[in-house]
């Protein structure tokens, strides 16, 4: 019998527990309760004390920690070596991680190291009453179908798509136990090395955090119309994104891409212009509260996802829309 119900692999952002890690704790809590066992968090970094407190407030009972200055940079090879040790120590029934930039690389490699299966990029993870079997729902075929999978090996391992769960409301009065684990790391274990970093994000509001997002697709026909979209974004204080077709055409940087292989956004309002709404695009924006579509094709799939739509040529619709929005926002 495993001694930990659920182990959540935590990630740090500027010394704090990342938002996605909190979401994963929210996903893990009902599972741990169902299993009648504690929920633990694995924390790796140069200093993880603050994050442990946050994890306890978000429902964790135990924190397995590895502290080493070498873990400050989230270097995957080092992270994995430490994580492997923490997992074996915690011995969980269920292992969960966010499918983040780090999770995308670390989780599959950890699964191979532990010799277990991994359910990737899940929207829902649960354990049926009276069972210990993890059921995970994951979109496949670019979101055209949904697969329910279970694991035949232990620990049962899944990654959770960011924003699939709401983070818990923290309870600062909750406490937990910190269990430091000794990990023997040395710098030579890091095989890959980052030489330089080049920033390419759109200026202004971060796409993932924006309350309103506007995005354009192939139907815009070139890079210039994105200036019109930027105008609208400015008026609304919105973030700006694009479909993969617009990125592949070289009109905007890759960091603007929304979708399965781009960013996942969950704004209150998402305004799409000349985007057809392919399932792989929807995969990144289905969490938006309200989708608005401007598209000349009434049959476009985006209208199946949208709450409000205008069928028409964006060249005519967008200018009038932006001008009216400008007046309304002022008043």
């Amino acid at each position: 019998m495993a001694q930990t119900g659920v182990l959540v692999i935590g990630e740090l952002a500027d010394g704090q527990l990342s938002l996605t890690s909190k979401e994963v704790l929210a996903a893990g809590k009902p599972i741990a309760e169902q299993l009648g066992q504690p929920m633990a968090v694995a924390l790796l970094g140069a200093d993880v004390g603050g994050a442990a407190g946050e994890a306890f407030a978000c429902g964790a009972d135990v924190a397995y920690t590895a502290t080493d200055p070498l873990l400050a940079e989230n270097q995957a090879d080092l992270f994995l070596s430490a994580l492997d040790a923490l997992c074996r120590e915690a011995d969980p029934e269920v292992l969960l991680m966010g499918r983040t930039a780090i999770g995308r690389e670390v989780a599959p490699r950890l699964a191979a190291r532990l010799g277990v299966g991994l359910a990737q990029d899940c929207l829902e993870v649960s354990v049926a009453p009276g069972s210990t079997e993890l059921r995970a729902n994951r979109p496949v075929y670019g979101g055209n179908a949904m697969a329910t999978v279970s694991c035949t090996s232990s620990p049962q391992f899944a990654t959770v798509r960011p924003k699939a769960y709401e983070p818990p409301v923290p309870d600062p009065s909750r406490t937990g136990e910190i269990k430091p684990v000794q990990v023997a790391l040395d710098a030579s274990m890091a095989k890959s090395r980052v030489v330089s970093v080049v920033r390419e994000e759109a200026e202004g509001i971060k796409l993932e955090d924006a309350r309103i997002v506007v995005a354009g697709g192939r139907g815009l026909g070139g890079p210039e119309p994105f200036e019109d979209l930027e105008d609208l974004a400015k008026v609304l204080g919105a973030g700006i994104g694009a479909s993969r077709a617009a990125v592949d055409s070289g009109w905007v940087p890759a960091s603007w891409q929304i979708g399965l292989t781009g960013k996942t956004i969950t704004p209150d309002l998402y305004i799409t212009v000349a985007i057809s709404g392919a399932s792989q695009h929807i995969a990144g924006c289905s969490g938006a509260k309200v989708i608005v579509a401007i598209n000349k094709d009434a049959e476009a799939n985006i209208f199946k996802e949208a709450r409000y739509g205008v069928v028409g040529d964006w060249k005519k619709v967008l200018t009038a829309f932006t001008e009216t929005v400008r007046e309304l926002v002022k008043s």
Partner: peptide, 22 residues
């Protein structure tokens, strides 16, 4: 999901009406 199609006498007006609706 049910899409509410916003219309107008022409496409410009549909664009204005969309803003008003939002």
């Amino acid at each position: 999901k049910e899409c509410d199609f916003i219309e107008g006498d022409n496409e410009e007006e549909a664009g204005r009406n969309l803003a008003l609706k939002l």
